[in-house]
Lab assay of single mutants.
Amino acid sequence: MAASAHGSVWGPLRLGIPGLCCRRPPLGLYARMRRLPGPEVSGRSVAAASGPGAWGTDHYCLELLRKRDYEGYLCSLLLPAESRSSVFALRAFNVELAQVKDSVSEKTIGLMRMQFWKKTVEDIYCDNPPHQPVAIELWKAVKRHNLTKRWLMKIVDEREKNLDDKAYRNIKELENYAENTQSSLLYLTLEILGIKDLHADHAASHIGKAQGIVTCLRATPYHGSRRKVFLPMDICMLHGVSQEDFLRRNQDKNVRDVIYDIASQAHLHLKHARSFHKTVPVKAFPAFLQTVSLEDFLKKIQRVDFDIFHPSLQQKNTLLPLYLYIQSWRKTY
Rank of each mutant, 00 (worst) to 15 (best):
S184E: 00
Q211A: 14
L174Q: 04
H223K: 07
V282R: 08
I155T: 06
W151C: 06
H206I: 02
K331T: 12
D102Y: 06
I262Y: 02
Q290Y: 10
C216D: 05
L289T: 08
I262G: 02
F306T: 00
I124W: 01
L62W: 13
C126Q: 15
Q243S: 06
R113S: 07
Y325N: 05
F246G: 03
P281T: 06
S242P: 09
S275M: 11
G110K: 08
H199Q: 09
L78I: 13
K101V: 14
V255S: 10
E122H: 13
A203D: 00
F88Q: 12
N146P: 04
I155P: 02
H272C: 12
L74T: 04
R330D: 04
S312G: 10
Y70T: 08
M112L: 11
F297G: 02
K119E: 11
A266N: 01
R159Y: 08
K316Q: 12
L74C: 12
K299L: 14
D102H: 05
A167K: 04
H206C: 05
N176T: 15
E244P: 03
G72D: 06
D165A: 12
P311L: 08
A167N: 13
R113I: 07
I207P: 00
Y73F: 15
Y260K: 06
Q243I: 04
G56I: 15
G51Q: 12
R218H: 12
G110W: 07
S183A: 11
S45T: 14
A81F: 12
A210F: 00
K107H: 13
D201G: 04
E191D: 06
S103M: 13
V142C: 11
I235R: 08
H223F: 14
P129S: 05
Q182R: 07
T318V: 13
L320D: 02
P133M: 07
W139M: 08
H269N: 05
L217P: 01
L188Q: 02
S83I: 13
Y177V: 08
A204W: 02
A273M: 00
M237E: 05
E173S: 11
G53E: 08
L79D: 02
A141F: 00
F276I: 07
H145W: 08
K172T: 15
K271Y: 09
V142T: 10
Q290S: 09
Q265W: 11
I171W: 07
E179A: 04
A135C: 10
Y260W: 15
G194K: 09
R249Y: 11
K316S: 11
A284R: 01
H269A: 02
Y168N: 05
Y70I: 08
W151P: 03
H223W: 13
G212A: 07
Q99I: 09
D245A: 09
A81Y: 14
M237L: 07
K316N: 09
I301W: 00
I124H: 01
Y60K: 06
A49I: 15
K228T: 14
S50I: 07
L322H: 05
D201R: 05
K143T: 11
W151A: 05
L65E: 02
C236T: 07
D165F: 10
H59I: 10
N254I: 11
R84T: 06
P130R: 06
I326V: 11
T279F: 08
K228A: 15
V95F: 05
Q265Y: 12
D123P: 00
Q132F: 14
R113H: 08
E82G: 11
V95P: 01
N250Y: 11
A287M: 04
D102A: 09
A266V: 06
R144W: 04
V304H: 08
L111Q: 09
A141E: 02
K209G: 00
L320C: 03
L268M: 10
V292S: 10
F93I: 01
D69I: 00
F288T: 02
L322M: 12
K271L: 12
T215M: 12
S242V: 06
Q327K: 06
A203Y: 02
V280A: 05
K331W: 15
V121N: 01
R218N: 05
D165C: 12
V104Y: 13
S264K: 10
H239P: 01
P321R: 01
R113K: 15
A98S: 14
H206W: 03
V46G: 04
A203M: 03
H199A: 09
S293D: 12
A135H: 01
M233G: 08
D296C: 08
D252V: 13
R169G: 12
Q290K: 05
A98Q: 04
V255Y: 09
R84F: 04
C216P: 02
A48H: 15
M237Q: 07
H269D: 03
H199W: 10
L322R: 02
V304I: 08
F230H: 14
P130C: 08
Q211C: 15
F276H: 06
V304T: 08
V229T: 13
Y168Q: 02
L152H: 03
V87N: 14
Q314C: 10
D157T: 14
E244I: 03
A287Y: 01
A47H: 15
P311S: 10
K154W: 04
S103R: 09
K118D: 01
H267K: 07
E175L: 06
L313F: 07
K149D: 03
Y222H: 15
E122I: 12
D164V: 12
S183T: 10
A200H: 00
P80R: 06
K107M: 10
C75P: 04
F285H: 11
V121P: 00
L238E: 15
L163M: 08
K166G: 14
R159P: 03
K331N: 12
Y60N: 06
K154R: 11
E295A: 09
V258H: 00
F276K: 06
V87P: 02
S275W: 06
F306N: 04
L77D: 02
T189R: 03
N94R: 02
T291I: 08
S86V: 02
S225H: 15
V255Q: 08
L65M: 09
A47R: 15
L190E: 01
L217R: 01
S275F: 06
I213H: 03
H131E: 13
K143R: 10
L111E: 12
R144E: 09
A263H: 04
K140I: 02
Q290T: 09
L163S: 06
G110V: 06
C61G: 07
L313V: 14
R84H: 11
S293K: 03
V104N: 11
I301T: 06
A48S: 15
F88W: 14
I326E: 03
L97R: 00
S85Y: 11
S103G: 15
V134Y: 02
K300D: 10
K228N: 15
Q243W: 05
H267I: 07
S275Q: 10
L65I: 13
T57F: 15
L188R: 00
V241K: 01
C216W: 04
T332G: 11
L322C: 10
P281S: 06
H202Y: 05
R144C: 07
E173H: 08
V46R: 12
H310I: 01
L152R: 01
